[in-house]
């Protein structure tokens, strides 16, 4: 089995899976019908991307692996998503800030991944770019609206950005497998995206009259499978059916 490639796919896909799961929690509970529909849409896109990645990963893994065994039957330590995307929906500002901070990175990543030597990854990236361009526009607009809306919304959005900022640096951590695959032209060296990322985010936050946090201390661990305490609850919810009724078709 191409272990490096398999692990790299998980690194890409788990972000989509967990971000999609978080947005899915809100379906039916949004601040307006329009935002509800839009957030569900983003969630749907992310799950669609997840499926493409996991179907590919299942092929590589072989044996009885399926997109679902990979999605639902790993232990917490085996999920490779960044800490950012597992953070809870504390309020609409947190949801939007979390999604935006991920979306900007996601788009930069896909724009590079489309040139991957791996044709499947390249194809998934090309399809996803269209979707993620919309995500970043939607969440970026809401960052501005809430940042430059009322005093209350400004404060809530600033709190969310401050709270989530510590998870942004992990986006650019290069794992061992990604490093090797990047040399072969398959993976993206995410450390190269950092400058463009902070430039874009800073410009938008300023446009939304928000202050860019100055924190020099960051959290990481997700890519190595060491998650925040929120992750276990998310997984027990998500894995409930597969764990309670093993080996069944739905």
């Amino acid at each position: 089995m191409k272990t490096n490639l398999y692990n790299y796919i998980l690194e890409l896909a788990d972000n989509c899976l967990i971000a999609g799961q978080r947005l899915g929690e809100l379906c039916g509970h949004g601040p307006s019908l329009e935002t509800d529909i839009a957030c569900t849409n983003i969630s749907l896109d992310l799950f669609g991307q997840t499926r493409s990645y996991f179907q590919y990963a299942a092929e590589i893994k072989g044996k009885d692996a399926t997109e679902d065994s990979i999605a639902f039957l790993r232990t917490e330590r085996e999920y490779k998503n960044i800490l950012l995307v597992e953070q809870p929906n504390r309020d609409f500002a947190y949801t939007i800030a979390r999604q935006y901070l991920f979306d900007v990175f996601h788009l930069l990543l896909l724009e590079k991944l489309q040139f991957s030597q791996d044709l499947t990854l390249s194809a998934i990236a090309k399809k996803s770019i269209k979707e993620v361009s919309y995500h970043v526009r939607f969440t970026g607009d809401w960052i501005k609206r809430l940042g430059d809306g009322t005093e209350i919304s400004h404060e809530k959005m600033q709190t969310a950005i401050d709270g989530l900022w510590i998870y942004t640096n992990e986006l650019f951590e290069v794992t061992e497998e990604a490093k090797e695959l990047a040399e072969e032209g398959i993976a993206v060296d995410v450390s190269t995206l950092k400058e463009a990322y902070y430039e874009k985010v800073t410009a938008l936050l300023e446009e939304g009259t928000l202050t860019v946090p100055e924190s020099k201390y960051f959290q990481k661990g997700g890519k190595a499978g060491i998650h925040t305490e929120h992750m276990g609850y998310l997984l027990s919810d998500m894995q409930y059916m597969q764990r309670t009724y093993p080996n069944m078709k739905w």
Partner: peptide, 13 residues
């Protein structure tokens, strides 16, 4: 109710 501040912000913006 939880969405009030969001809708207010959108109007104000």
């Amino acid at each position: 109710k939880r969405g009030t501040w969001v809708r207010d912000a959108a109007m104000s913006y």
